[in-house]
Simulated scan of single mutants.
Amino acid sequence: MGGVLDGVDQRTKLAGHNRFELLLFKLGRRQRFGINVFKVQEVIQCPPLTQIPNSHYVIRGVAHLRGKTIPVLDLSMAIGMRPLSSEEGGYVIVTEYNRSIQGFLVASVDRIINIGWEQVKAPPTGAGRESYLTAVTDVDGELIEVIDVEKVMKEVIGGREEAAAETIDQEVSGMNDHVLIVDDSSVARNQIKRVCEQIGLDCTVLKDGLEAWEHLSQLVADGVRIQDRYAMIISDVEMPRMDGYTLATKIKSDPAMRDIYLILHTSLSGVFNTAMVQKVGANEFLAKFDPDSLLTAIQKQLKQHHGFN
């Protein structure tokens, strides 16, 4: 299965063209789920796991891989389905999210598909696992569910939600600036919003790149100067309908919008993102989720926005 993840350089060419590759897998016998290939380091047959006392109930144990010890989460349990049977073996999808490496135990791994983000939609209202879905897409007449991994990670791993008090810069706190937040994960939107509110920022929150692009285009059509409305835009990369790389490319190619400060804030990690920030014209890349780093970046831009030294 490792060979299916070869050719990363070729896959990077998809970014910025509103396309990506989705690794399909199963948690049971029928329903297929998906995860972005760029978040996957490798796929292995489930190795022997070492149990950890008092760990979260969805953590099946830790695996020792190439000198590293990583937690392995039962992804089926994490989204409210039945536990995967240890007798069935299964596979571990080793991923990097939010500056950490972990494995997700799944029943089986299917294949990788190349699709456009415009084919990915918000989950239907009333879906049984709605709270754990960030998107859905149709593949060969079957509905593929994309799991909100940020929600899973928050519930299992936890983490600090607000920046440390000593990070707050009183020089820019309480200025009532306005920030546009674009992210398909409700967990991520709320995390960013909480950090912004620590220094009194107003927030407009949108769910994907297309919604943000239509919003910004309407403001321009109404004669609004984008920099007067927003001090900055903080956008995710992986989003249904239009991804953050494509949104950044469109904003920075539009004379009426190109001067707005744009931060790409994503759980996708690695040096690849540094190159992509330059390619699409974004001003900064931040890996999720470090509230201190996020607030520091926000305050730095606010000082520039107001002409502080």
Rank of each mutant, 00 (worst) to 15 (best):
M1W: 08
V8M: 13
Q10G: 14
T12V: 15
N18F: 06
N18C: 07
R19Y: 12
F20L: 13
E21G: 13
L24G: 10
L24W: 08
K26G: 10
G28L: 15
N36M: 11
V37I: 09
V40R: 04
V43L: 02
V43R: 02
Q45L: 14
P47D: 00
H56Y: 06
R60F: 13
G67N: 04
K68N: 15
K68R: 13
T69Q: 06
M77I: 14
A78T: 11
M81Q: 15
R82W: 15
S85P: 05
S86M: 15
G89L: 10
Y91E: 08
V94P: 15
S100N: 15
V106T: 04
V109I: 10
D110L: 13
I112M: 08
E118Y: 12
G128R: 15
E130R: 06
T137V: 05
M153S: 13
K154N: 13
V156Y: 08
T167S: 10
T167Q: 09
D169A: 01
V179E: 00
V182I: 09
S185L: 11
S185K: 06
S185W: 12
A188H: 05
R194W: 11
C196R: 01
G200P: 14
C203P: 14
T204H: 01
G209S: 09
A212C: 12
S217N: 09
S217H: 04
V220W: 08
V220Y: 07
A221W: 01
R225A: 09
I226R: 08
R229Y: 07
Y230K: 00
Y230F: 05
R241Q: 12
R241A: 05
R241L: 04
T249P: 00
K250S: 09
A256G: 10
R258L: 07
I260A: 00
T266N: 03
T266R: 03
G270N: 07
G270Y: 04
Q278H: 11
A282R: 02
A282D: 02
F285D: 01
F285Y: 10
F285N: 01
L286N: 02
D290H: 11
Q301Y: 00
L302S: 00
